[in-house]
């Protein structure tokens, strides 16, 4: 057994990388993940990544905000201390709209982004787990787990054939740790 942990196919062009994914999948080689400097449309379908459920989370947060807003207004100006302003009713629904709306948006945005950061383990100070430092610059990386896929020669040639400019055999999973 070699000490290689991950094989990285480094592509200079996103279309070549997509081609590489096809090649590897035709040969039953499982792909660990891809790292790209920009979003690649259509890659999720190729890799079988399920659609994100964040919109559902966003909707739930939004509803929470709406209910919180209306409850806050109802409690403060209708229930707890109704004010008589020119004899008008305390429960003035049109006046509820702006604040309830703003709170809906606020809860929705903050909740959704917090969920995104939580699910992807993004937070200030987290050590970046980067497999190739050029993946945020100009390289499109396919990472293959070398313990699961042991036919290195074949992987090398498949990646090269698809147009990889470089194939790396990394002994460490992440190169970004100091």
């Amino acid at each position: 057994m070699s000490s290689t942990k991950y094989i990285l196919g480094s592509f200079a062009d996103p279309d070549d990388m997509m081609h590489g994914i096809d090649k590897l999948q035709e040969n039953n080689i499982s792909i660990y993940d891809c790292f790209t400097p920009m979003p690649i449309h259509g890659i999720e379908a190729k890799l079988g990544v399920k659609p994100s459920r964040l919109p559902i989370a966003a909707f739930c947060f939004g509803i929470t905000g709406l209910v919180s807003g209306i409850s806050l207004l109802y409690y403060t100006i209708v229930y707890d201390w109704p004010m008589n302003i020119g004899g008008k009713p305390a429960l003035a629904m049109p006046d509820f709209v702006p604040v309830s709306f703003e709170l809906t948006i606020l809860f929705c945005a903050l909740g959704m982004v917090a969920t995104f950061f939580f699910r992807n383990h993004l937070f200030p100070g987290r050590a970046p787990r980067v497999m190739d430092l050029r993946a945020t610059d100009d390289r499109f990386i396919i990472a293959i787990d070398a313990k699961e896929n042991t036919d290195y020669e074949k992987i090398n040639s498949l990646l090269k054939e698809a147009g990889a400019v470089d194939v790396l055999h990394n002994e460490r999973k992440y190169v970004s740790y100091e």
Binding site: F35, L47, A109, R126, R129
Partner: peptide, 24 residues
């Protein structure tokens, strides 16, 4: 590194990133 929140550009990160941008 601190400011980047540990971003690595994986498929799932980008997928969620795009959804977040769209909903925002």
């Amino acid at each position: 590194s601190i400011l980047s929140f540990g971003w690595n550009g994986s498929v799932k990160t980008w997928q969620r990133f795009e959804i977040v941008s769209l909903v925002l």
